[in-house]
């Protein structure tokens, strides 16, 4: 945390709030039958702009916000920990591609930039939904041991569909967004200097 200055800390916090706000808005659906939200976008933006650690912390905060605002379903301690702490934090893994995305955007290599944006979005969402999938399997295994392979298939279908939808929506929106306003991730200067202790 020491390596972040105050402005970065605040950006992380505000963008976690942003993800939560987009999550709360009920009317915000691209299609009535698609309940896939693009709430992950602010976390991706922070991850691309400020890197891996900032992305992970922002995702972590978003998970905690889900719990404190009562949006989370706590069914078992393990399930809550996996689904709200680990899964949400892992969206930040998109930040591993922060440098290559920023460099290609600065050099105006749009195709390269968009390729890496899609890769980053994919990595962030696939890791997140992997944890949701795992939590689902663990959960149903615990309560339905005799159901054999059913928990795996059930959890894979449910989370798989949500994952594909969320990934495609976020990838398209982020590509359009950053092609239009690359400064959102490249303009990561700080007007304040002091490190937050």
């Amino acid at each position: 945390m020491k390596k972040f200055n105050l402005q970065t800390l605040i950006e992380i916090a505000i963008f976690a709030a942003f993800a939560m706000a987009l999550d709360i808005l009920p009317s915000f659906k691209p299609h009535p039958s698609i309940s896939i939200s693009f709430a992950m976008i602010p976390i991706f933006i922070i991850a691309f702009r400020r890197g891996f650690a900032a992305g992970v912390i922002s995702g972590f905060l978003w998970g905690i916000l889900q719990i404190t605002l009562g949006d989370a379903y706590i069914l078992t301690p393990t399930q809550a920990f996996i689904e709200y702490i680990i899964a949400f934090s892992c969206v930040g893994f998109a930040g591993l591609f922060s440098n290559v995305i920023k460099n290609s955007l600065v050099e105006k290599k749009m195709t390269t930039a968009i390729t890496w944006i899609v890769v980053g979005t994919f990595v962030g969402s696939v890791i997140r939904y992997f944890w949701h999938f795992l939590a689902g399997v663990i959960f149903f295994k615990k309560y339905a041991i005799e159901a054999g392979k059913a928990p795996v298939i059930f959890s894979l279908t449910m989370n798989g569909i949500t994952f594909i939808g969320a990934f495609i929506t976020c990838a398209i929106l982020l590509s359009l967004l950053l092609a239009k306003a690359p400064a959102l991730v490249t303009n990561a200067r700080s007007s304040t200097s002091r490190k937050a202790a």
Binding site: A13, I14, A16, A17, F18, I24, L25, L65, T68
Partner: peptide, 21 residues
Amino acid sequence: HELALMMSISLRFIPTLLQET
């Protein structure tokens, strides 16, 4: 402390961001 500070800032800004949206 930093995490608590960030949490308070997040909570403070959710309504503002909702209104702005």
